[in-house]
Design a protein around this nucleic acid. Structure first.
Lengths: 138, 138
DNA sequence: TTCGCTGCAAAGGGTTTGCATATTG
DNA sequence: CAATATGCAAACCCTTTGCAGCGAA
């Protein structure tokens, strides 16, 4: 998710429709680096469209994920978190508060030897760093 | 989870009790590299103790995880998978069938610069390789 | 006018919990 | 005997689904 107009064009191209609800949801995600939950997006959007339903938010997010415009993160098995940055990157996850931070620096990720991966065909890889954020270190 | 006797000793040490159900569950996990779900463990154990309940399996697994003897994997946000290998290692995850393979080869995992991680205190890191296993490549 | 989207409420599915009973140590 | 574990069923929680009506194109 980078630009509203770009997203809306892509939606049209796939026979989807641009409603005020969806436009607002997509707007909300632009440049958001705090990896919100569906509920977080819902709360934020509800401040402007009070009657919007959580199901609508889920469906809008799901469409974005299907289009490859949004990343769904579910490492901890808790609620899904969403990340508008879809270029390859890694994550710092705080085991204290569950906050997630992007690592935009490009890192060289080693690949396992053939003896380990066999014929497994690796499509993408990522690193997850578990630890404590500043706030949780006290 | 490496040895039944070791596990049982540790259980005693924590004031826990060793029941036939738990002994069997722990036995089942030894050297298991296929990352079973709770349901898988349940089915396997039920062949020997038909009246065991799924809740009992969940509780036994949960205790092992708390003791650090078992790893709970929930990357995909689907059912939890369990891994008796608790030493640091990475995973090959097949996006086709959901199978998980361990990478035991020790890999040097790069750490992000200070400018990226800031004061975040990294406790452990792991690499996830997403791709297709041999069976799913056809 | 068509067909996707909305909001509501109900259903789903994995996991957890409450409780009476059984068992361990 | 005291305290934990068991089994059952119900509760939980996040997410998805069904559906009648609405609204975008």
């Amino acid at each position: 998710v980078v630009s509203i107009n770009l997203i809306c064009d892509r939606l049209h191209g796939e026979g989807k429709r641009v409603t005020p609800q969806r436009r607002l949801i997509y707007q909300t995600l632009i440049n958001k680096a705090n990896h919100p939950k569906a509920e977080d997006v819902y709360e934020e959007v509800r401040a402007i469209i009070p009657d919007i339903s959580l199901a609508t938010v889920y469906k809008a997010l799901s469409d974005l994920v299907d289009m490859g415009e949004l990343l769904e993160i579910k490492y901890q098995g808790e609620q899904s978190r969403f990340d508008p940055m879809v270029t390859p990157h890694s994550h710092l996850i705080c085991t204290g508060c569950g906050s997630i931070k992007n690592v935009t620096q490009s890192l060289l990720i080693p690949e396992p030897d053939f003896s380990e991966k066999g014929e497994f065909n690796i499509k993408k890889s990522e690193i997850i760093y578990w630890g404590l954020c500043v706030a949780c270190q006290s």
